[in-house]
Nucleic acid binder design. Structure first.
Lengths: 238, 238
DNA sequence: GAGTGGTCTAGACCACTGA
DNA sequence: CAGTGGTCTAGACCACTCT
């Protein structure tokens, strides 16, 4: 019995070339796992193995219980310029939308107190939103604002750009910017919001934002579908 | 039959709390998949499922055919400051080492020509190295240099810092820096060099480097074990 | 050579989505 | 309701590492 490569590798290759050739286009649904396993004469577990490795590569993605789809091109994103999401997306000829999930006045968790240099048990405004690219949810974001700097903000329309609201209503402009990126896994609310399974790989971009005078104003935690984004930073070192 | 959560989630939780409590310490080997499946009264596939989701989270990592280990803390890395790897690691009280895999004079692939703004079929020096953190291989890096700027460099000891060699032997200093980050999967040589299975998630950091006069001098592609690093950028916007 | 993960088979039932 | 992926069982052989 000959065995050049593994079955998984062959299936991966077959699907990759279908995608490269354009027969399977961006956003299209793949056949079901059961159909694929018949097609390739193997079991669902082997098929899933191949699909998961293509997912890890960023070529396809999975929506919980809906199926597998060909991944669209990545959005190019420079976290140093805290620009308006919608503007950034439109400059790349694509379509953006934002949905507010929840708006709360909370007691800050210890990790947040540390991040924002707050005393223990401080209160914070928490805003949770999801953002979509061409109709597909690609990012879950959680903002935490210092309440004393944003009186009444929770009553405004928060599906707009926060950067815009900061400028227009509070005359606050961003100064310094600091961000961290880690590759990790989705769980709980994050997984649900992104219609991902528990344990799917995601990119977490955490940022602390300072105003024009160097004071901390807020932080945000962006959870990106890992295949949806390319972080791109171009800058002269300080 | 009661079913609060999935078995996978329970196993994940059990292992996580063992790690958090310090009973399983950084770098320690977990019991084998077979032992774990007996311990939890389930099959290897279910165990593997739980292990893979902890791997995605960055809590544990797998070395091909050697076993599963508790992941050490992430290295904090700012790609904007193209500092010496060894220096950076030592500042974080850890131990670094570098091994040269290969050194070649190659014809540039199309994507490289584009990246380095070269005419088709240009030649390049290619240097491949792996870098370890506390004895564990965490990064595979491929450098491509413009040959005319680095005569004789391939004969030097390339396990040192390239930045250092550039300064001392060629009087070249870095100016502008530009980098991209994508979350993708290991394959082929990369997987092998990092002792990862095909399809394991990695972080690819690509950089194009300019000299003090703004001319392109080289590029590098760093393939990081995804759990080994935290990208951290702190800078004032240009 | 013993032990490890890598790969694979051939099924099963469940939870959720969408028409 | 039919169809999808999510989860799970109970095995098997192979390729590789380590001693």
């Amino acid at each position: 019995m000959e065995r050049t490569t593994t079955q998984t590798a062959q299936i991966r290759l077959a699907l990759t070339s279908q995608i490269n050739s354009g027969l399977l286009q961006s956003g299209m649904k793949l056949p079901s796992e059961r159909e694929l396993s018949e097609l390739f004469g193997t079991t669902r577990i082997t098929i899933k193995e191949a699909l998961q490795s293509l997912e890890a590569e960023g070529r396809i993605y999975c929506e919980d219980r809906r199926g597998w789809f060909v991944a669209p091109p990545r959005l190019v994103y420079n976290p140093l310029y805290r620009s308006h999401f919608h503007e950034m997306v439109e400059r790349q000829q694509r379509q953006a939308s934002t949905r507010v999930l929840s708006v709360r006045n909370i007691v800050a968790a210890p990790s947040l107190c540390q991040e924002l240099e707050l005393p223990a048990l401080s209160r914070l405004f928490q805003i949770r939103r999801v953002r979509s690219l061409d109709g597909r949810v690609v990012m879950f974001v959680e903002h935490h604002l210092k309440p004393e700097r944003f009186p009444g903000i929770l009553e405004l329309d928060l599906s707009q750009s926060l950067t815009g609201i900061y400028q227009q209503h509070y005359d606050i402009h961003y100064g310094r910017s600091r961000f961290d990126i880690v590759s990790t896994a989705a769980s709980g609310e994050v997984a649900q919001a992104l219609t991902l399974g528990e344990g799917s790989p995601i990119l977490l971009v955490s940022r602390v934002n300072y105003d024009q005078h160097g004071a901390i104003i807020d932080s945000d935690h962006e959870y990106w579908r890992h295949d949806a984004v390319r972080i791109s930073v171009d800058s002269r070192p300080g």
